Computed example of a mutant assay.
Amino acid sequence: MTERRPGTEWRWDETLFAGTAAHYLTGRMPYSPELVDALREELGLDGTGRLLDVGCGPGSLTLLLAPLFAEAIGVDPDPDMLTEASRRPGAANVRWHRARAEDLPAGLGVFRVVTFAQSFHWMDQPLVAARVRDHMLEPGGFWVHVGGTTHQGAATAGQPPWDSVDELVTRYLGPVRRAGQGHLPNGTRSGEEDVMRAAGFRGPTRLTLGGGRPVARTIDDVVASVFSTSGAAPHLFADRLPAFEADLRGLLASAAAGGRFTELTHDIEAVIWRLH
Rank of each mutant, 00 (worst) to 15 (best):
Thr188Lys: 12
Gly44Lys: 09
Gly210Gln: 15
Leu251Asn: 06
Thr262Gly: 09
Phe69Thr: 11
Val223Ser: 01
Arg5Trp: 11
Asp220Ile: 00
His97Val: 14
Glu192Lys: 13
Gly90Ser: 01
Ile268Tyr: 02
His145Ile: 03
Ala232Cys: 12
Leu104Ser: 09
Ala22Asn: 07
Leu184Glu: 12
Ala216Ile: 13
Leu82Glu: 12
Arg249Gln: 10
Arg131Thr: 13
Ser32Gly: 06
Pro161Ile: 11
Leu173Phe: 05
Glu41Asn: 09
Ala270Gly: 07
Arg213Gly: 02
Ala91Thr: 06
Asp53Tyr: 08
Ala198Lys: 15
Thr170Val: 12
Ala199Phe: 04
Ala154Trp: 02
Thr229Val: 10
Ala157Asp: 15
Asp76Ile: 04
Asp134Val: 01
Ala256Gln: 08
Arg131Pro: 07
Glu34Thr: 07
Glu41His: 12
Ala72Asn: 06
Tyr31Gln: 09
Cys56Asp: 05
Gly27Cys: 03
Leu16Val: 11
Arg189Gly: 12
Ser230Lys: 03
Val165Leu: 13
Arg213Pro: 04
Trp10Glu: 05
Phe142Asp: 14
Phe17Lys: 02
Asp37Gly: 14
Arg213Ala: 13
Val113Glu: 03
Arg240Glu: 15
Phe244Lys: 07
Tyr31Val: 05
Ser230Cys: 13
Phe237Arg: 03
Thr188Arg: 14
Gly258Val: 03
Glu167Thr: 10
Phe227Thr: 07
Gly140Arg: 03
Asp46Phe: 01
Ala233Pro: 05
Gly258Asp: 05
Pro58Ile: 02
Asp134Phe: 00
Glu167Leu: 13
Val271Ser: 10
Leu82Val: 07
Pro214Val: 02
Val222Trp: 05
Arg202Lys: 13
Cys56Asn: 01
Asp46Tyr: 04
Ala92His: 12
Ala224Glu: 07
Thr150Gln: 14
Thr62Tyr: 00
